Amino acid sequence: MFLALKEMKRAKLRYILLSLIMVSILFLVFFMTGLANGLSFADSSSLQKIKADYIVTNEEAEGAVINSELTQEQFKEISSSIEEPASPLSLTMSTITGKENQKDTDMIYFSVDPEHYADLPIIEGKNISEITGKEVLVNESFKKDGYELNDRLIDESTEKTMTIAGFIENQTYSFLPVIYSDIDSGIHPTKSNEGIYNAVVYNGAKTDIAGFDTSTNEEAVQSMPGYSETQGSFTVMKVFMFIISAFVSAVFFYVMTIQKTNQFGVLKAMGATTFYISKSIVTQVLLLTLFSLSASATAVVGMAQILPEGVPFQASVSLVLVTGAVFILLNLAGSLLSLYKVTKIDPLEAIGRSE
């Protein structure tokens, strides 16, 4: 520790520059991960938080709820095969208008049977089991836009009027705010052809029904059109940033080790062991990595506070801890190149003497 700190103090500029590089790369990793999490959540939070253990769709949809169509007869067939009460689920995109001077809002209905659907996380007002008639629950984004309980909304397609009975938390689908309604209210636009439902949702044990797909929430999210491809792109970018960061730090320390060959040779000639010198290098790697993690995490938290509200971004403690652990392991692995060089240093050769 003494040797590591003494050297870092003596060559402050070198280590400051390396720290800035590592902070910049880590900031990008944190930011990209937070952005990927935010985009994922905005794209699928309503499915992630759906109040059901399983979602049943037709086989042709391959688990994608939005692509599935079920008739009333198929709903009855599925319900009769399930021991627990089931609710139909209908997803319908539309546009609503509300208060004066408020712009039209694109949204998506999640229409269910309130009697057979579990309660939702409510910010204010009624829950799903309490709504009647043309009452609806709307995503919290409506509240931020100035809407209040009992305000009226008008569907542009059906010209039906609905009343805000409650505000629900973090309910979006394909980046659109979700409105929960009674499937029998007639508020949402009527679906074309025979398909009037998208899926059937229920709690309890999994039941495989011939001719239909039964998925968990997570499986339904992964089956959303374009979801896996988007997340895969972000994953590739994060992996490359990790590799670049580890490569930069490994090369930096290796070059410094080569430059200090004479010094290390003198230390060995004076009795310093390879383990002692290696411990100094590892200590430097750990100190720089921990400092970079702290600085970049602080920067990301600050950035999250000033990002526009419309930018989906989600950073968490688990994100910082997991990313930090991976980064530390990669940097320690990169330092092995320098440690190998230290083991090969011959004291006599390093100080310019022959055997």
Rank of each mutant, 00 (worst) to 15 (best):
S24D: 04
L18S: 10
N198Y: 04
K103M: 14
Q48S: 12
Q74I: 04
M22N: 09
G310E: 15
S141T: 10
L153Q: 01
F234D: 01
M8A: 00
A297P: 12
S81D: 06
V301W: 15
F275G: 13
G186K: 00
D53H: 11
G204P: 10
I154P: 05
S278H: 05
V236P: 02
N203R: 06
Q171W: 13
S157C: 08
T158A: 05
I55T: 02
A210G: 07
K49A: 13
F212L: 04
E355W: 12
E169N: 11
G352N: 03
V112T: 01
D213P: 02
F327C: 08
Q231I: 14
G334W: 01
Y276V: 03
L91A: 00
S292V: 08
L5F: 15
S294N: 06
A210L: 08
D346C: 06
T274N: 15
S79D: 12
D182G: 03
K143L: 10
K134C: 08
L337T: 07
P225M: 02
V248N: 02
F240G: 00
H116E: 13
K191P: 01
G334H: 00
L28Y: 04
I96G: 02
R353P: 10
V317C: 08
L330V: 03
S81A: 13
P225H: 05
E159H: 07
N198G: 03
A86M: 04
G98D: 02
N198W: 00
G125L: 15
A64Q: 09
N203T: 07
E73G: 06
A250C: 14
F41M: 11
I78E: 00
F31R: 06
G195C: 05
E73T: 05
E59A: 10
S44L: 12
K126S: 12
T257G: 11
E100Q: 14
I183Y: 06
G302L: 14
T273N: 07
E100T: 11
A299E: 00
K260W: 06
V342M: 09
I168S: 03
E309M: 14
I351E: 10
E140A: 03
K126N: 15
D145Y: 07
S335E: 06
M8P: 02
I96Y: 05
N37L: 12
A118K: 14
N262R: 11
V178L: 04
D113S: 13
Q305T: 15
Y197W: 07
L293P: 07
A210F: 03
V201I: 15
F327H: 12
E60N: 08
M32E: 12
I25S: 05
F41C: 04
P189Y: 04
T257N: 09
T97W: 01
M32G: 00
L287G: 00
V320I: 15
P85A: 02
S296Y: 11
M303A: 15
P177R: 00
L348T: 08
I78Q: 03
I244S: 04
V282H: 05
E59Y: 07
Y147M: 03
T230M: 14
T283I: 08
P312L: 05
